[in-house]
């Protein structure tokens, strides 16, 4: 997988420049799209290895509640420290859960992930005096080295963008490493990998840990953007949404997850504004169309457009 420098620079330029011309509300939605993108990247990584998780909200909620408890117990809300903390708690959680998870495939992998995330949900919901239960925890305004970092402002957006950029680079390096190639091979044929001397379990375990860390970072940013954390962060519906976005965008390219996240946030925001009781119908309808007619998601639609364009221009096919 070669980075297409032209695409990377165009996307980066868009993400850096477009918000400058946008009202604060659009900047806010774009911030949401960016942290969603980070969590979806984790889901998409696992999907590349042929593994579907229906419980990725476990790591997302680990991240949101890392911030929640930090604020509740220590009154500490500095993003500079909490973003790495979220990555760490996500990684640790994934390292623990992954010990069991790496043994499973297919529907069992999906269900076991669901079960673990629902345990966290049940605990967050029921232990009122520790977690705040349904009330959740109010996070307030984040700080960065002591300076306030308000959601919907440029400093907050660009911080999120820098983090998302760093993470994209890490994921890209991972996919370009031998491990990344093995990961994709798992989806095709596990046995062959074992023949080659690599352990399938090790590949899945390491990918799982990386995906968990991404979930944690996403959760921290989500907590600061929204300003409030709730048990539903761990609910199966949240996990379902991550999978939804991963497939909406298509998980074959990193850009797919980004397109999926941006499209999802805008569709959700505006369809729930104009059709408050039909926004799920809108999303479900779009997804149905994609699955039945364009299974590769927005990424595949984009690629087919590009290849059509470039084959016309250069007479060559796009690899």
């Amino acid at each position: 997988m070669r980075p297409n420098l032209r695409v990377v620079s165009i996307v980066s330029a868009l993400l850096i420049l477009v918000p400058l011309a946008m009202p604060s509300w659009v900047v806010f939605i774009l911030t949401k799209a960016l942290f969603t993108f980070i969590a979806v990247l984790g889901v998409a990584l696992l999907l590349r290895g042929g593994q579907l998780t229906f419980g990725h909200a476990l790591f997302f909620a680990t991240g949101t509640y890392t911030v929640g408890f930090s604020v509740k117990w220590f009154g500490f809300r500095d993003a500079l420290l909490l973003v790495p903390m979220g990555a760490l708690t996500g990684l640790i959680m994934a390292a623990l859960v992954g010990l069991i998870m790496a043994r499973y495939r297919g529907v069992f992998f999906a269900m076991l992930n669901l079960a673990f995330s629902m345990i966290l949900y049940a605990i967050l919901l029921k232990f009122y005096w520790v977690t705040g239960g349904t009330d959740g925890i109010s996070v307030g305004t984040a700080t960065f080295l002591g300076f306030p970092l308000r959601a919907g402002t440029y400093p907050f957006y660009y911080l999120t963008l820098v983090i998302a950029g760093l993470i994209t680079y890490v994921v890209y390096r991972f996919l370009a490493s031998p491990l990344g190639y093995f990961l994709r091979a798992i989806a095709d044929n596990e046995i062959r990998i074992e023949y080659s001397g690599e352990s399938v379990r090790r590949v899945i375990y390491l990918t799982y840990i990386l995906a968990g860390g991404l979930g944690g970072v996403s959760g921290v940013l989500a907590a600061f953007t929204v300003g409030h954390v709730v048990p539903e962060d761990a609910f199966w519906f949240q996990s379902g949404q991550f999978v939804f976005i991963a497939l909406l965008g298509g998980f074959e390219g990193i850009l797919g997850s980004l397109m999926g996240a941006v499209a999802f946030e805008f569709i959700q925001t505006y369809s729930s504004k104009y059709f408050p009781y039909a926004w799920q119908l809108t999303l479900g309808g779009i997804m149905l169309f994609i699955i039945l007619f364009r299974p590769g998601g927005l990424w595949a639609i984009y690629e087919s457009l590009v290849s059509r364009f470039s084959s016309k221009a250069e007479g060559s096919t796009h690899g």
Binding site: G50, L52, A110, G240, G284, L288
Partner: peptide, 15 residues
């Protein structure tokens, strides 16, 4: 693939 099946039925749930 299982993810297609699960997501299809998830979309039907939403609708």
């Amino acid at each position: 693939d299982i993810h297609i099946q699960l997501l299809l039925t998830f979309s039907i749930l939403l609708i």
